[in-house]
Structures are given as C-alpha cells and as structure tokens.
Design a protein around this nucleic acid. Structure first.
Length: 441
RNA sequence: GGCGGGUUGCCCGAGUGGUCAAUGGGAGCGGACUGUAAAUCCGUCGGCUCAGCCUACGAAGGUUCGAACCCUUCACCCGCCA
C-alpha cells in the first residue's frame, strides 16, 4: 500500500515563497517543453488543488542532481497549492524503460531493485512536504498494484487497450526497431506506466503527469488509457531535456560521472565544488532548474555573472542553495569553511585544530603511525595514484605540502610540518586534497 | 564452408626485423594565465627499488644475435563469394 505520510524528514524543507502561478513559474525557468491543452490545464490549476505525479525508476542506488529537475517540479506544484505524488518505480524499474536506449537493459535482481527503491524513496521524501492537508504529498511504489496483478487480467484489462500499431509508432519503440529490435518485455514498459497513471487516478484522483520530454510518449499513452478505461481526461506536462554548454546531460561531473544526492556517493563538499565550477553560461540555467530562487534574484545573478564573472556570484548561490536543499543548511557552513581553508591559499597553520579538522573532514584521509614515509608515497597511497604518477606530480610542480610546493621527489615531511602535531595537508594540483593524520603522541 | 582485410597504450590511429614504451589526434593529469571558469599556451601521459630495470602492440608457440613488425596455430571482428 502506498504510504501517505512519511517519517519526519532529516532536515527542514527550506522555507520558500509560495508559487502563485505554477505554469508561469515553470515557463520562465525554462521548464516547459510540451503540455496538453495548456489553457484547460491552467484553468484546472486555478480552480483548486490538482494531483500531479512523476515517476522515478530505481536505476541506481541514489538519485542524482538531474533527478532534481522533476522532483523539484513536484515541489513547485505543491508550493502552488497542489498535491504531488512521487512514484518509485519498483515495477517499471524491473522492466526497464526502452526510451533513449539502443539495447536491452541489464536486468537487476528483485533484491537489488527493492533495495534501490527503498534508498530512492527516502530521498524523494526529503523534498516534499507530507502534511495532512489537501496538498500533502504521497509517496507510492507501483509494485504495490502491479505485483498482485495476474497476467491474464493484465492482458485482458490493460493490454486490450493498446493497439500494437500505435505502440510500434512511438519514438521509443520505433528507434529500437531500427537499431535491431527490442523484447516484448521492454515494449510493455509503456503499458505499465499507463497502468500507474490509471491506478493513481483511482486512488488519488490524479489526472496530471509530469516528466522529462522523452517521457511524452509514455505519458500520453497513459492519458489514452485513462480515457478508455475511466472515461477521464487528464494532462501531460514535460520539461525540456536540458544539456549544459558542453552538450552534457545536466548534473554530470567533468569526469562524466553523475553527481549524486547520496552524501556517501557525492559528498556535500564535492557537490558544492561541482556547483562552484559550473560554467558561467550554465549557472543561470542551473539556478532556474535546480533551486527555488526567484526570478528577480536569478536575473540579478545573471547580470552579476556578466559584469563580474570572476566573483562567481551565481555559482556560489547555486552551491549554497543546492547543498542546503540536499544536505541541510548546517552542511553549507561546514563546506564553506572547508573550501575557504583549502582554496584560500597559505596560512593553514593559522587555523585552530577544530576548524582545521572540520574543514578537512571532506577530503580523503590517510593515517600514518611512526615515521612518516616520503611525500610521494603518501600521495600515491592517499589519492590512489601510481608511484610514477605521484613522482610526476612533484616533477611537474603540482604537489603541495601544507599549501607549499614540494620541489624534491625524495622529500619527507619534517616534524614541524605536522599541523598541531597531527595533520599534513597534501595536495596534487588545485583540487585533489589529501589529509594525513597521525595519532596523538 | 572458401577467399581477402583486420585485432597496437583510456579512445581514435600510425608504425611492417634493430635507433619502439612505440609518430599523431582526443580524453585525462600538472603548470602558466585567470576567477577553484572558458579559451589559449607549455609540459606530461605503462609500472618500478627510476640516468637503470620490468611488463607491454588479440592468445600461444616458432624463426632470429635481436620481432609490434617474419612464420605456424587458435580466438574474435569486418568485407566478398557459397
């Protein structure tokens, strides 16, 4: 059964001004790609609380920054006085959405999927408000109604409404037919998603589904089913699939990996740093899509970026907002202190021990007992480099001990180098910081 | 099944008996510039007990003083013919 209320979120949702006109809000943020009859939708939105859903398939152990686009959109609807439903795809994740794929997904085991659903659900909960009022959010799992369904019932009650010729015509399917075909399993994905829509309509009178623009086909398939089985009409609303100035999907780090919401996968510090390093051309876009910062302020930040790019006001604001949103306001303070200490230049020995310790808690660390090995060995062990790499770093002038360049490949930290007698701050290049710690003697 | 072409470092791709750890490009990394950005420039880019040594050019054997390069077998990929 879907859970209607959630346990207390780990941190307070940020207080954000209510949204007066959610469509207008989405529009200036660049979040509107397509909608069904927009005027009708606007009219319904104005008439009273509408229930809006968006699905999240458990494709990994965590949501990533890109997932915030639809997730925050749900929250935007909530702030505008509507009820959001976050749907975890325990069933659809089982099948795998063929959209945008060229080959069958590798199937994960049921255990893996249910574990992921649990992880993702707990993340989804944190961005919505689960009060008892008419706009209280709902967290659902489509496995709840899909698992008990028999094959025969499914084929007779659902499958019957799907003309194969239409299914084949859908972009997600036809693309795959061109590139070698797809299995019946994957082609069924749109049926499951449509079934979800109908089920949420029955349970919560949900008649609006939102999602990325690649979901348009799946969403409208659901609208068709809703019309056929329930004689109900609903709405679809999609967001553009935004790419950054380098053509990458939003929320990809420079290395190409995802920036995750799970602090164990992407630390708050790493998230903050990721934001700070966002290209000038993308900062405004990110602010619009990934934060609740209002229009006037975003546009002011756009101007600030144009006039004084080096100040990186937009990136800083983005970093603070996102870290607060994802990890809580307390983390922002810690992360700022860490960044200031590590990028502020010299004077590490001026920091008192608690501050230093807090600042460095985000960096990888290494514990050394007894005699200290040479700097090169510490770098290699702590940063996962080969010895040659570490040696090269020194040779190229890219190795630092307590913010001072290390010139000698054979350098060994001296007793005076240990800050407060306990810490060494090693660095390779600008960003790869390593903390070496030794037990209090 | 037959004939031909191919398999090189993270990716692309040169190299056809010694001067090959292997040209060039991309990615990555470091430096300079700067703003922890972009662009640009320079450097670097298998490992190590690092002026030397070890391991590497699909796999295994062979020829040779010496092989990524020649020969044999095997595996995989791509063409053409059945």
């Amino acid at each position: 059964m879907a859970r209607v209320t959630a346990p207390a979120p780990p941190h307070e949702l940020p207080t954000v001004a209510p949204v007066a006109d959610v469509l207008a809000d989405l529009e200036w943020r660049g979040l509107l790609a397509q909608t069904t009859d927009r005027e009708a939708l606007a009219k319904e939105l104005a008439a009273g609380p509408l229930t809006v859903y968006c699905g999240f398939d458990p494709t990994a152990d965590s949501l990533h920054v890109g997932s915030l686009v639809p997730l925050l959109a749900l929250r935007r609807f909530q702030l505008a006085g509507h009820r959001p439903i976050a749907l975890a795809g325990g069933a659809t994740g089982f099948i795998g959405d063929p959209t945008g794929r060229t080959t069958d997904r590798v199937m994960s085991s049921p255990e893996e999927i249910s574990a992921r659903v649990a992880l993702i659900s707990s993340q989804l909960e944190r961005f919505l408000s689960f009060d008892d009022g008419p706009t209280g959010a709902v967290l659902a799992n489509n496995l709840d109604w899909t698992a008990p369904l028999s094959v025969l019932d499914f084929l007779r009650d659902i499958g019957r409404h799907f003309p194969v010729n239409q299914m084949l015509a859908r972009e997600s399917v036809s693309a795959r037919l061109e590139s070698g075909g797809l299995s019946f399993t994957e082609m069924s994905y749109q049926l499951l998603q449509s079934l979800d829509f109908v089920e949420l309509y029955r349970r919560y009178d949900c008649r609006t589904q939102i999602g990325g623009n690649d979901q348009w086909g799946n969403i409208t398939a659901g609208l068709d089913l809703l019309r056929r089985t329930e004689q109900a009409s609903g709405h679809a609303l999609t967001f553009p699939l935004v790419t950054d100035s380098a053509g990458q999907k939003i929320g990809k780090s420079t290395g190409g990996g995802n920036v995750w919401l799970d602090p164990d996968l992407t630390s708050p510090y790493a998230l903050w740093q990721f934001c700070l390093n966002v290209d000038d051309r993308d900062a405004g876009t990110y602010l619009r899509l990934l934060t609740f910062v209002g229009r006037e302020e975003v546009e002011a930040l756009d101007r600030a970026t144009a006039e004084r790019p080096f100040a990186r006001a937009a990136q800083r604001r983005l970093a603070d907002e996102l870290v607060a949103l994802v990890h809580g306001p307390a983390e922002v303070v810690r992360v700022q202190a860490a960044s200031a200490a590590l990028f502020g230049g010299g004077a590490l020995d001026a920091l008192d021990e608690p501050t230093l310790r807090a600042a460095l808690s985000e960096a990888p660390s290494l514990v050394v007992e007894g005699e200290s090995p040479p700097v090169v060995d510490l770098l290699a062990a702590g940063l996962g480099l080969s010895k040659s790499d570490a040696r090269r770093a020194v040779k190229e002038g890219g190795a630092y001990l307590n913010n001072a360049k290390v010139a000698d490949e054979a350098a060994v930290p001296s007793d005076e180098d240990w800050l407060h007698g306990r810490f060494l701050v090693l660095r390779k290049g600008k960003r790869n910081v390593l903390v070496v710690e030794r037990p209090r003697s």
